[in-house]
Write a protein that binds this DNA or RNA. Structure first.
Lengths: 190, 190
DNA sequence: CTACAAATCGAACAAAGTGTTCATTATCGA
DNA sequence: TCGATAATGAACACTTTGTTCGATTTGTAG
C-alpha cells in the first residue's frame, strides 16, 4: 500500500519536528523559538513544516493534546475512585525530563487543559455512580474541579521544585488532604 | 515640582494604553493583538509606547502584576486563617468584566501567578503560627499549594461558567471542602 | 531495474510586525 | 512668556511569517 510508505515518512518528519521543539524548549523560552529554529534543528525544509502544521502553535498542541488525553486515559484504566494518583506521580517522575521542558515552555498548559477535562469528566461520572440516588449537597462540578485543581497544582509544584519527595509520599499527602473533604462533603466512604 | 506634571501626563498615557489593551482583549485573542492595535486604540504615538514599556508583554505584566499583588493584599487585611475567600469571590463578581477579559486573554495567568505567590506565603506563615511548636505531618508548602490551587481553580471555573451560583454559595462550598482537610491534616481547629 | 507517485527541499517572495531614531510639536508649571 | 519634559509620527532596518514552485529525493509496485 502507498499509505504505509507515506505514513512512515511523514511520521518520521513529525517526530523530528516534535523532538526539535522539545529540545529547544529546554534551552529557551517558548515564545522566542522561531519556526526557523525548529526546522534547522530538525533538518527539515521550511515548506515541509507548513505541509504538516499550520504554525508553531499547531505543532505544540497537536502533539501535546495527545499526551494529555493519554494521561487521562491511563489514569483511569483501573476502577479507582479518585483515580490512581500514584501512577500519575510516578509516570511524571519517570518522564520528568519531558515534563520539565513542558513546564518551562508553556506546553504544560495545553496538556493540563486536556488532562483536566478528562479527569473532571471521569471523576464526575464515578462520584455520581457512587452517590447513587442521593443527591450531592455540593454541585458535583465544583467537587471535581476542586479535586483536579488541587491535584494538578501539587503536581506542578512538585515538578517545579525538582520532586523533593517520593511519588509515594506525594500521593499519600494528596490523599490525606483530599479524602476527608470528599467524605464529609458527599458522605461517601472509600 | 516637575515630577507632578510629568507623572500626571505619563500616568494618563499608561492608563490609556492599559485600557486599550483590556478592550482589545475582550474582542480578540491576546496573541493576535499588535502594538499597532493598542496605540491606535489609545491614540498614542508609537514611540511613546516604547518610551513607557519594553514591549506588549511588559504592558501586560507591569499592570497586572499589580492587580495580583493588590488582590493578595486585600485578601489578607483581616486576620483570617484561610484568608477571606468570600471577599475574593465578591470582588471577582463585581469586576467580572475585567476578569472575563483576562480569562479570555492570557492575562489571568500573570495575575494568578502573583496572587498565588502571595496566598501561599501568607497562608504558610499563618499555618505555621497556628501550629506553634508542633510540626505538621504534611509539609506546609504542600498544604498551602493544595489550598490555593483548589481555590484558584474554582475561581476560574466559576468565571468560565458565568458565575452560576452566588459568591456566598461558592465560598461556603469551598470552605466545606477545604476545612475538614486542614483539620485532619494538621489537627488545627478554626 | 525501472518507472512513478508522493514527500521533501530550499530559494524567493510579499506581507506583517518589531523596536529605534529623530526632528517636530504640544503641554504645563514657574 | 519661557523652558523643560513628554508626546508625536514618519522613516528606517530588521526579523519572522506563511506561500509558491520547480528541482530533488525516496520508497514501492511491477
Amino acid at each position: 500500500m502507498k499509505n504505509t510508505k507515506n505514513d512512515r515518512r511523514s511520521q518520521r518528519t513529525r517526530q523530528l519536528l516534535t523532538t526539535a521543539l522539545l529540545e529547544l524548549m529546554l534551552e529557551k523560552n517558548y515564545d522566542s523559538i522561531t519556526v526557523q529554529d525548529i526546522i534547522d534543528r530538525a533538518n527539515v525544509g521550511r515548506s515541509t513544516f507548513y505541509a504538516h502544521y499550520l504554525d508553531k502553535e499547531d505543532l505544540l498542541t497537536s502533539q501535546f493534546e495527545e499526551v494529555g488525553r493519554h494521561l487521562g486515559e491511563v489514569a483511569y484504566q483501573d476502577g479507582y475512585i479518585l483515580f490512581p494518583t500514584l501512577k500519575v506521580f510516578q509516570h511524571t517522575q519517570e518522564n520528568h525530563h519531558l515534563y520539565k521542558a513542558l513546564v518551562w515552555g508553556k506546553g504544560i498548559e495545553v496538556i493540563f487543559k486536556a488532562f483536566e477535562a478528562h479527569l473532571n469528566a471521569h471523576l464526575e461520572a464515578e462520584l455520581r455512580h457512587k452517590l447513587g440516588e442521593r443527591s450531592s449537597p455540593i454541585p458535583l462540578p465544583i467537587v471535581t474541579h476542586y479535586i483536579t485543581g488541587a491535584f494538578l497544582t501539587l503536581l506542578k509544584w512538585w515538578l517545579d521544585n525538582n520532586m523533593p519527595v517520593t511519588p509515594e509520599k506525594m500521593d499519600a499527602y494528596f490523599r490525606q488532604l483530599v479524602t476527608p473533604s470528599i467524605q464529609s462533603a458527599l458522605n461517601i466512604e472509600f
